[in-house]
Design a protein around this nucleic acid. Structure first.
Lengths: 192, 192, 192, 192
DNA sequence: TATGAATGAGAATTCATTCAT
DNA sequence: TATGAATGAATTCTCATTCAT
């Protein structure tokens, strides 16, 4: 039992590494098998197909993201604090799990209609979740009564655009400072 | 002459449609040929390989984007106006060229090392271009002395995140209003 | 008419060059067209297909060989003289038409069943022709009563084996000397 | 182990048959697969490409030839005896391995620059080996002081020219007699 | 349960040939 | 008659998946 679990984990971890580095189509099952130190056939004991492995890996990655990046709705904090926490969590996650972030936030390779749907659905859920928080903040008189949807796009946009410089350019940045600066701009604006 | 041009164009246009819908790897050359109403072999009269076709299509798409979305540096406008123009141009482009936008803004599929490099380079150029405009605005006392790089990520983030709702969800939105609302938030902030 | 003939010749000459250098399968019709300075379609005005062009070229090459290498049966010479003439003619031909020799003497690439038959037939004719000459020489008491067929293989063998060093290694040899030395060995033997 | 070897061997044997019958270019990988009773993909488990399979087959065929046709330099025999042995070995080989002989002795189809080089190199080695034996024989006073290179061409010429009648015409000949007759002619000459 | 040799469907690409001009 | 742009049949090779061990 324990063995089985650890094999499954080894495969998922290998999958994250290879898929996020090479993309879905350029990844060979054999490469994952080698990296996971299992036989090629063993992968099929745990996953039905390459697509299934990719999906399972995606799901688990998203789970890890949501576990690590602080959940915001259960905290009774002012919006600025929540935003700061979200940004800091996201930036740390980017720095620690460079490969994973690509998959969770950026991968748009079109593989399968169903997966596309799932991916799109996940995006909408994230947006809805964020929009709800914003609405609450507006209702509580925490922030101006801006269009919640538009603010959602601004925030998720920043989260997305940070991945490239941190991962690809190896931008070494202090998490707290960056989160604070972004929050400041969003809260106070750039106008004089 | 006209014939030759229109054949090449037909292929490029078909390529934009199919590549942006299915992604690089799931696209079959035959499908492009059928959509372009040419023989499979004809594609190879104009493009050396599948990768070459993809690259050429990418380059032309980027060119179209930069031509259509108003160039900002030659205008002697206040930053808020420039931002408004950029957003309006981008939103209109998204609405008119849904497939193209996906390619210009979102495709990060890993296909080829050289292409990855080119894609990354393009991103950096866009960022540098935006950063320069911001620096000028700060120097002119147009906006607060924020970190130009961070503001760049906020702006390019919004541009990127608008693609999905407009294209995938068919968000029917008034360009002027959306551009204005985003600009307002960025200039004035969301804080009370 | 004259034009047509010279175009046909240009194509045949180009075909000899390209086919003998690259072999049948690695030769592209376009290459022949370019070398012959005609359009690709023009070749098909004179030859039915690639195979037809190859066959016609082969036939003409063989004709040239037999025209240039002295015909032996009409000469009333002793066998040693005939052999000397044959060898000298063959060596000169090898030196002057390196590409052609390859085709006439060495090319065995299997292209087509019919062509294989034709090629084999041609070989047998050459052998029979040689065997007849040998028989006559034996009857006239010119040479020992050896097995004519075996002597044929020895002589055609030498002719064949000279092509490689002359063409591939650029063996610069004096025709008369080489022909004489070979004749001496064949006539007198190598034994003491 | 045994299985693996026999699978590789089955492919090589099928390759010999098909390549020698149809030539390199007219041979389809699938045909080899069918004859070897393996799947198309299996060939690629053992050989990197069609060219690689051809090369490996060539190398092994040459090895078989040199193993079966008696090695001459370790024998302290008079030259006539050596020649007799060589001829007898060669004739037997031709009779037993008709397809193989074609490949070892006659195939000059132009496939690949590197292969051409290899093939030419092999020819030169064979010539050098023969030339050395001849030089030794001359030094030992075994035979007349003829030009060793020219004698080499005569001998390798006969070897080559025997292939066609034996293989293509199914010439049924007694090995000993043929070898003896050729040797006699070479040693004693045909002159009276 | 674990394996990896064997498989064959599927895709990119080539190039002889055609045919409208 | 001469042309070369257009074509698609044909071929090699890849790699996810299977299954006997």
């Amino acid at each position: 039992m324990e063995n089985k679990l650890s094999k499954r984990e080894a495969i998922i971890n290998a999958a994250i590494k290879v898929f996020s580095t090479k993309g879905y189509h350029s990844t060979r099952m054999e490469e994952i098998a080698i990296l996971a130190e299992v036989g090629k056939g063993t992968i099929y004991e745990y996953f039905a197909s390459k697509l299934d492995l990719f999906q399972k890996m995606l799901e688990e990655s998203v789970k890890v993201y949501f576990t690590e990046v602080a959940s915001l709705d259960d905290e009774n904090l002012p919006f600025a604090e929540k935003l700061l926490l979200l940004l800091a969590g996201h930036i740390d996650f980017c720095k620690e799990h460079k490969e994973l972030t690509r998959i969770v936030f950026w991968d748009t390779e079109i593989i399968d209609e169903e997966l596309k749907e799932w991916s799109n659905q996940m995006r909408k859920e994230k947006e809805d979740y964020m929009t709800e928080i914003i609405k609450t903040a507006i209702n509580k008189g925490d922030i101006k009564p801006v269009n919640p949807r538009i603010l959602t796009y601004i925030i998720s946009g920043v989260l997305g655009s940070l991945w490239a410089p941190i991962t690809l350019d190896n931008w070494e940045v202090n998490t707290e400072d960056l989160a604070q600066e972004i929050t400041d701009i969003v809260i106070r604006g750039i106008g004089l």
